[in-house]
Design a binder for these strands. Structure first.
Lengths: 335, 335
DNA sequence: CTGAAAGCGCTAACAT
DNA sequence: ATGTTAGCGCTTTCAG
C-alpha cells in the first residue's frame, strides 16, 4: 500500500506537506502541490479512510436504519425510493451509506452500539415503529439523526403531508358523489395514524357520518394480503361503502383483489383510492387512483437535513413534503 | 471515548491484555478476563472499528455495487430481495454492508478506487451491464468479489437457472396447446440473453417455428413501459401469438396492459407468462403465471461465496439457483 | 499468563 | 511555505 510517506520520500517533502496537499490547505506552494500530486498519481496513491477517520473522528459514513424484522423494509418501493433520493445527495456531499442492523460482529447488540463502533457521522431512520426500546436508546444519544415518517421534539424529521393527502382523497371521492366512504388504515404507524386522522377530519368537514363498520385496519406493514382481508370485512358490512380510501397502494391492491373475488367491479361497484403511487399503480387494471408521495424529495430533504446537522447546524425542524392526487381509473362518479 | 487504556488503568492490567480479552486470546486467565470484561461493562467501552481496521487491514465491511444510473437498481424487487438475503448472512457472519458508488468524497472516481479507499473486504456486484470499463477495472483487481447474474472465469458467480426456467415456461404454454408463442426479451443483459436462449431452445425442441416477428426486445432495465411497447408491436404482427413469454414480471405487466388496451382479454385471447414472481404477481388481474426466482437464496448463496473468498477460500464456482414455475391465471389452455 | 514497544496511515498543533 | 512531533485506538510480535 502506498502511503503519504512514500510520496514524501519520492518528492523530498515531509508527510505533513503531502497531507496538506490532499486536504487543500492553502499554505502549500503551487509548485510543491503539483510535484506531490504528480508523485501521487505516479505511485497510484489512495488515501486510507480508516486512518483518516481515526484522527479526524469523522467517517464520512451515514448509517441507514430500517426495519429488518418485518419483511417490509427494503422490499417496499417507498423505502427504495427514499433511499435512492437520500443516497444521491449524500454521495454528492461526500458521504457513503452503510446499513446499521441491531447486530454487529455477528452478535446481538443494538443500534447505538453499532453506530458508535462504526463511528458513523449520522443516521437516517426509516422505521414503521419508532417505539422499539433499542431505537429509543439511539434517539436519546448524541448521534446526529433524522427520522422519516415521524415527529420528534429533539430530532429533525421528514414526512409526506399525510393529512392533506388523506383529506384530498376523501374530498375527491366526495366530489365524485360518494357518501359512503370507507377506510383501510395503516395500523398504528405514524403514517397510518395521520391518514386515519385525515380521513376522519375530512368526513367530519363534509358532514358525512363516520361509520365504525367502514373503518378497518390493515397491517402496519401495508401488505397486499392485509388489504385483501380488510376489504373482505368491508364487504361484509351491513351497508357497505361505495368507495374506499386505502392508506397505502399495497393495501389498495389487496382490496381490489377482494372486490373482484366477490364478483364486483372496480370502479363499477366500488371506487378505490390508494396512497403512495408505486410504480405499479398505473399498470393495474383498472389503473389505481392514488395520492402520490414524492419519495425522492423525501430522501433528498432527509439527507440535506442530516448533513446540515452533522456539519454543525442545530435547527430541529419538521419538513413536510407535499403530495399530489393522481387520478386514474379506479374511481368513478356515481348518481 | 472510552478506550482500552481506560480499562487498563482501571483494572491495573496492560492494554495488551485488555485487547487480548476482546479478541478471545486463550492466554488470559479466567479471573483477569472477568475483571476486564466487568470494567469494560462498567465504563461502557465500545471498540473503535477504524482503529482496529487500521492495524488489522480488515474492515468487516462488504461493498454493494449496483446500478445507480438507470433508475432500476434498488427499486426493482429483484434487487431488494437479493440484498435482503445477502444482508442476512453477511450480518450473521459479522459483516456490514456499504454502498459503493462511482463517486467518493463527492468527486468522480471509480469503483476500485472507492473500494480501496474504504478498505472493504469484498464486493458483491448486482449489475445489468458488467461491461462498464469502470467495473472491469475492479474485476481485474485483487478485491474479493462475487457477481450476480453473470458468468466469469475469475470470479464466483450466482444466478438463477434462467435457461431451465425459460424452457419450462415455453413448455408450459405448449402443454396448454399454444403453438404461436412470442417472447419479450430482457435486452442484452445476462439474464435477458439466457432467457432468450432458453426460449429459442425450447421452441426448437418442440419443433415450433421461430418467427422473428414474435420476438421483441424489452429494455435492459425491464420496465413495465417497455413491456407495454413490446406487446404493442407483437399485436401488430401479421399472425400475432396466442401466448407470450416475457423475460420479467414487469415486462409481463406492461404487456398485459397493452393487451387490455386493445380490448383483448388475458388469458382469453392471449396467455402471458412472466419471470421473477414479484410480490405483486399474485395480486394482478388476472394473477400472473410466472417463473419464480428465489432472490433470497440468490443473496444467501452470494454472501456465502463472498465470505468464503474473503476468508481465504479460492474456489471459483458458479452457483445456479433453481427456479420454479408458479401457475396462476394468466395462461389458459386452448383448442 | 502478562506486558513493553512498535506501528498501522493520517492529521493537527506548533515551530521554524 | 515547510517540517517536527505527537497521537488517534488498536493489535502484534516478542520478552519475561
Amino acid at each position: 500500500m502506498i502511503t503519504i510517506y512514500d510520496i514524501a520520500k519520492l518528492t523530498g517533502f515531509s508527510p505533513t506537506t503531502v497531507s496538506k496537499v490532499f486536504n487543500d490547505y492553502p499554505d502549500v506552494s503551487l509548485k510543491t502541490r503539483r510535484k506531490i500530486l504528480e508523485a501521487a498519481e505516479q505511485l497510484g496513491y489512495l488515501p486510507n479512510a480508516h486512518a483518516r477517520s481515526l484522527t479526524t473522528k469523522r467517517s464520512w459514513t451515514i448509517g441507514i436504519l430500517y426495519n429488518e424484522s418485518s419483511g417490509v423494509g427494503m422490499l417496499h418501493p417507498y423505502f427504495a425510493g427514499v433511499i435512492e433520493g437520500f443516497k444521491k445527495v449524500a454521495t454528492s456531499r461526500g458521504y457513503d451509506l452503510m446499513f446499521i442492523s441491531k447486530d454487529i460482529g455477528g452478535k446481538k447488540s443494538g443500534y447505538l452500539e453499532h453506530c458508535k463502533i462504526r463511528g458513523v457521522d449520522g443516521v437516517v431512520g426509516i422505521l414503521p415503529d419508532y417505539s422499539d426500546p433499542d431505537f429509543t436508546e439511539l434517539l436519546d444519544s448524541d448521534v446526529p439523526m433524522v427520522l422519516l415518517d415521524q415527529e420528534s421534539e429533539t430530532r429533525g424529521t421528514v414526512y409526506s403531508d399525510n393529512l392533506d393527502g388523506s383529506i384530498r382523497a376523501v374530498q375527491y371521492l366526495y366530489d365524485l358523489g360518494h357518501r359512503k366512504i370507507g377506510h383501510i388504515g395503516g395500523g398504528n404507524t405514524f403514517a397510518g395514524v395521520k391518514r386515519m386522522q385525515g380521513y376522519l377530519q375530512a368526513m367530519q368537514e363534509l358532514r358525512l357520518p363516520i361509520c365504525e363498520e367502514h373503518i378497518i385496519q390493515g397491517s402496519y406493514d401495508y401488505t397486499m394480503e392485509s388489504g385483501r382481508i380488510a376489504m373482505e370485512q368491508l364487504l361484509q358490512a351491513a351497508d357497505s361503502p361505495t368507495a374506499v380510501f386505502a392508506a397505502g397502494d399495497n393495501l389498495a391492491i389487496g382490496a381490489m383483489q377482494a372486490v373482484k373475488d366477490h364478483g364486483l367491479s372496480i370502479p363499477g361497484d366500488i371506487s378505490i383510492i390508494g396512497f403512495d403511487d408505486i410504480a405499479m399503480a398505473g399498470f393495474l387494471t383498472p389503473s389505481l387512483t392514488t395520492v402520490r408521495q414524492n419519495t425522492h424529495a423525501l430522501g433528498n430533504k432527509a439527507a440535506d437535513m442530516l448533513i446540515y446537522t452533522i456539519e454543525g447546524g442545530t435547527t430541529i425542524s419538521s419538513e413536510v413534503i407535499p403530495v399530489e392526487l393522481v387520478a386514474r381509473d379506479s374511481c368513478r362518479a356515481i348518481e
